[in-house]
Simulated assay, not measured.
Amino acid sequence: MSTSSRIAIVGVGNVGATAAYSLMLRGLFAEIVLIDHAPERAAAEATDIADANAISQPVRIWAGDYADVRDASILVITAGAATKDGEPRTAIAGKSAVIVRDCVRQAMDAGFNGILVVASNPADAMTQVAQATSGLSPERVIGTGTLLDSNRFRKRIADQLAIAPGAVEALVLGEHGDSEVMAYSTVRIGGMDLDGYLGEQGFDRAAIAHDVMRAGYTISDGKGYTSFGVATAITRICEAIHRDERVILPVATMLRGQYGIDGIYLSLPCLIGAGGVLRVLTPALTTDEQSALLASADVLRQTIEAVY
């Protein structure tokens, strides 16, 4: 496995470019290489970010090609098809799978041997496609999964309670998509569960769940795409890997019997470090939450079957 301080991003659209900018600001890597099927776009984004880097921490940023991924410790895949007119992420699975397979094959042919982080939509299915194509162990192929959704969940809860998001622990599990599971049983505020914290205070769980699930669509309807939230999630995962943080993050990983689910990528809380996913955790869920998680796995299984 590579231990270099180089990260490569394949797909320099709105998400890839924003992720590169975020990574530059964090100063995590000495080198950031951008790769895109449109080299002129990659070159323009690299130049723009490098100009901003002139007043930030020193980082070498350039537009490269697949030969440059051999020396990267992490490869981020954001390339894929785009959703249109509010269609679900799963609707573009077939088109995205063709793109992701091609990107991963070229990276592996170039000698890549690090950690793959996949953000292409639909994220869970495309992570599974990337793992199968790469031949890397599942622990080394991670999807952004529900990390962004969990951040949204925490923020919506915090907003309704008028407290800081950092005071809230909460997980969204399963698919990064319409079948995702708002695991209210995982909510903790100062060590208290949600009901204990609320007391007699009112709380609209259904409204929060709907808002979190529809957030991506709402943002896309307003500006045509999403970028900042998912780019921040990408950066956080890469940081945890690069620094061997051994932090718990809800990301997409291959399940091996957890909750009776096997052979499917979906999100559960995972211990993340230099080797990728070091452990998959199984919080105590309610019966309804477990049923919803199984239903989410079925959705993802159908999506995967449709692209093979």
Rank of each mutant, 00 (worst) to 15 (best):
S120V: 04
F228I: 14
P39R: 07
I241Y: 05
R41H: 05
H176P: 00
P138W: 10
T83G: 02
D159G: 03
V12C: 06
L147N: 06
G216V: 09
M182V: 10
L278N: 01
T287R: 02
P88S: 06
F29K: 13
E289G: 11
A44F: 10
M1H: 03
L198Y: 11
R214I: 00
L116T: 03
F203Y: 13
S296D: 02
Q57A: 14
E200F: 09
Q128T: 01
A97I: 07
A107I: 05
Y265R: 01
L285M: 12
R60C: 12
F29G: 10
G177D: 00
Q302N: 15
A79C: 07
T235G: 10
H176C: 08
R246D: 10
Q106K: 15
I92N: 00
A67F: 02
R140F: 03
A209H: 00
L278T: 04
N53P: 00
R246I: 00
M192V: 04
N113T: 04
A170P: 08
L161K: 10
T78Q: 05
P250K: 09
A252E: 10
A167N: 13
T83L: 11
C238F: 00
D298M: 05
I115V: 14
G273A: 09
A110Y: 02
Y265S: 06
I272N: 11
D288S: 13
V141N: 06
G143C: 10
E139D: 09
E305G: 13
R243C: 06
A43D: 08
M1N: 02
I234N: 05
H242S: 13
Q290R: 15
T282R: 13
L28Y: 11
I99D: 05
R214G: 00
V118E: 04
G166Q: 14
A30M: 02
D288C: 04
A209Y: 02
F112I: 01
A52C: 14
A8M: 02
T218Q: 15
D68T: 05
R154E: 00
A164K: 08
A209S: 15
D85W: 04
E40L: 12
R246A: 12
E175V: 06
A123M: 15
G257Y: 00
Q128F: 02
G191Q: 02
E239Q: 12
L25Q: 15
E45S: 08
I208Y: 06
D109Y: 03
G135I: 08
D195G: 11
Y66D: 01
L75T: 02
D195K: 14
L255I: 05
R156N: 15
A252M: 11
E139Y: 05
F29M: 12
H176A: 14
G191S: 00
G174D: 10
S56K: 11
G86A: 13
A19F: 09
S5N: 14
K84T: 09
Q201Y: 00
P122C: 14
R188D: 01
S150W: 12
A17L: 03
P138G: 07
V307L: 10
A209F: 01
I49P: 01
S185Q: 02
L300W: 05
L75A: 05
E289A: 12
